[in-house]
């Protein structure tokens, strides 16, 4: 019952629409729209509470209590923040390129929402189970670099410009190990479809067969989302807030929500590719698949947040050097070793 909760709702909606006698295409489009609205609400609520979680994690790691005024245990704090941000004036600097300046926060959310289309949150729970799912996800996520850069450039402020240049350099450099790191898994599975990748991990998760790939992917993914220790882009002690410096109110909130939604995407992706997706470990099948997926995803999100308060920020030269001289060769070596290993495996004929 609980296992098929969401799939059941979709089927019920489909049968309800089928009774109306409208064309099948329109019914499918309506079902897709309902899925999309559900995903959108999920992203927004999650992004709001991830901010709260981040503040609580930070507080407990620094022996503080954290937000505890609004609502029980401060749980309503994110909604107070959102309300405040919507009501704040969006200040457009006099010298800014107004069109690009306002276009950037509008567009920053688009790739993030589009990516959620292919993420399977549980058994049969992907909105679109695309045959090139992984490739689509990688292609769309790399777009967000462009929108961050647009925002930083159009602000016409020196801190913003430096920040946006760093965005491009950093995200471009760490996209390579991220993309190459996933190749080992693709070689083993032989498919880019998310459901095939998860099905291949029914017995052994890929974190055990591809541990180096997991580390490469996770490091590069943390850098891709501009999180500490790779948050040079918005290093507040050096360049105020990077590309966000001139943004205020809702425009800033859009960037902020997109950042937290991106953390969700990378952790969901790591769960799908390496932690077995919605498969239950130790045969604990009585707990629904989507609960397992979220448990794994939030565990990874917690690690990402913990990293921020554990490690100091690294320097720009260290950042670029680490990406190009350590991660890229390591990822290429991993592809080579995986290939040789699989050929030997086939030759022995296990």
């Amino acid at each position: 019952m609980l296992e098929n909760l969401f799939v059941g709702v979709a089927d019920w909606l489909r049968s309800l629409l089928g009774g109306l006698g409208t064309p099948v295409e329109i019914n499918e489009a309506i079902v897709m729209l309902v899925k999309l609205v559900a995903i959108l609400v999920f992203i927004l609520l999650n992004a709001a509470w991830l901010v709260y979680m981040e503040r609580k994690v930070a507080a407990y790691m620094q022996a503080r209590i954290g937000p505890n005024r609004v609502g029980p245990k401060g749980l309503l704090q994110p909604f107070a923040d959102v309300g405040k941000l919507i009501c704040k004036e969006i200040v457009i600097p006099r010298k800014a390129d107004i069109v690009v300046f306002l276009l950037a926060p509008v567009l920053i959310f688009v790739p993030t929402v589009m990516v959620f289309a292919v993420i399977p949150f549980g058994k049969n729970m992907a909105a679109i189970d695309m045959n090139i799912g992984v490739f689509y996800l990688l292609a769309i996520t790399s777009l967000s670099t462009l929108f961050l850069w647009m925002g930083g450039w159009a602000s016409n402020s020196k801190y913003s410009l430096i920040g946006s240049m760093r965005v491009v350099a950093q995200m471009v450099s760490y996209e390579l190990p991220l993309v190459l790191g996933l190749l080992g898994v693709i070689m083993i599975v032989g498919s880019l479809r998310m459901s095939d990748i998860i099905a291949a991990q029914e017995h052994v998760w890929f974190i055990f067969t591809q541990p180096i790939a997991f580390l490469i992917y996770f490091t590069a993914a943390v850098a891709e989302t501009n999180r500490c220790p790779f948050d040079l882009v918005e290093g507040e002690s050096e360049i105020i807030s990077g590309p966000y410096t001139e943004y205020a109110g809702m425009a800033f909130a859009m960037f902020f929500m997109a950042e937290y939604a991106n953390i969700m995407v990378i952790c969901a992706m790591a769960t799908i590719m390496f932690l077995g997706g919605w498969h239950a470990p130790f045969g604990l099948d009585f707990i629904p698949s989507w609960i397992w997926f979220f448990l794994k995803m939030y565990a990874l999100i917690f690690i990402v947040m913990q990293l921020r308060w554990t490690y100091p920020r690294i320097r720009v030269d260290q950042l670029m050097g680490f990406g190009w001289k350590v991660l890229v060769p390591l990822a290429l070596a991993n592809i080579f070793i995986t290939g040789v290993g699989m050929k030997i495996y086939q030759a022995i004929g296990w």
């Binding site: 926060p105 589009m114 809702m250």
Partner: peptide
């Protein structure tokens, strides 16, 4: 699949623009 992706694209654009316009 791509019609679904198109719906996602359009709604995401409306959502982004809507947030800024409301503000």
């Amino acid at each position: 699949d791509w019609a679904g992706v198109f719906i996602f694209l359009v709604v995401a654009l409306i959502f982004g623009a809507g947030g800024i316009v409301t503000s």
